Amino acid sequence: MVRRLPESFREKLYFQYQGRYAIPRAEFNKMMEESTDTKQDIVRRPQGGPFERRIASDDRLKEEVSTAIMKTIRWPSTIQTIKGPLTAGFRKSWLYLREKREKHKKSQKALKSQATGSTSGEKADTKKGQ
């Protein structure tokens, strides 16, 4: 699955793992060259090499992918926020920003409730059923 990620996103993920695994730059560059999909004479491999397998077997892969996604969208999102008042007006931009913040708070609350377990949700469901 790691191997099938889009190349630019995969490179960001690889770079994160380079730092995490403390892989020397020269060795990392060699691995990146071997895993590139842009060479004409190499047929795209559906399975990754040892580095991809190591990443795929990592317990924290989900968090690392989330971090890579966050790094990917952070800059465009910031630019959109800055441009908003100029293109849509201050009132619409403020309302949009407020909606986004409320959505973020709601998602954070949902994540916290998932992390604490579903026992509190089960209690609420059993009370409703009684």
Results as ranks from 00 to 15, higher is better:
8 S>M: 07
62 K>D: 11
45 R>D: 05
9 F>Y: 08
5 L>K: 01
88 A>C: 02
102 E>F: 08
22 A>H: 13
114 Q>V: 02
17 Y>E: 04
106 K>I: 00
22 A>I: 03
20 R>N: 03
77 S>H: 05
44 R>C: 12
14 Y>F: 15
77 S>M: 11
99 E>L: 07
67 T>P: 00
123 K>V: 11
116 T>Q: 13
120 S>P: 00
83 K>R: 09
6 P>Y: 04
26 A>I: 11
1 M>C: 03
116 T>L: 12
47 Q>W: 09
130 Q>N: 07
33 E>P: 00
6 P>G: 02
32 M>F: 05
79 I>N: 00
107 S>E: 13
7 E>Q: 14
46 P>R: 11
124 A>W: 02
19 G>V: 00
127 K>Q: 11
120 S>C: 02
22 A>T: 02
28 F>S: 08
2 V>E: 01
85 P>Q: 04
62 K>S: 07
93 S>Y: 03
29 N>I: 07
29 N>C: 12
25 R>G: 01
31 M>V: 05
6 P>K: 06
21 Y>R: 07
85 P>A: 07
82 I>N: 02
121 G>M: 08
61 L>A: 09
90 F>D: 04
4 R>P: 00
40 Q>F: 12
84 G>Y: 04
98 R>A: 10
60 R>Q: 15
50 P>R: 06
31 M>N: 07
26 A>R: 13
123 K>W: 05
21 Y>S: 01
79 I>M: 03
122 E>D: 10
122 E>G: 03
77 S>Q: 05
93 S>E: 00
79 I>D: 00
5 L>P: 00
63 E>L: 13
122 E>K: 11
1 M>L: 09
123 K>D: 08
17 Y>C: 01
81 T>Q: 13
78 T>E: 07
40 Q>G: 05
6 P>I: 07
115 A>M: 13
14 Y>H: 14
18 Q>T: 03
117 G>R: 04
57 S>F: 06
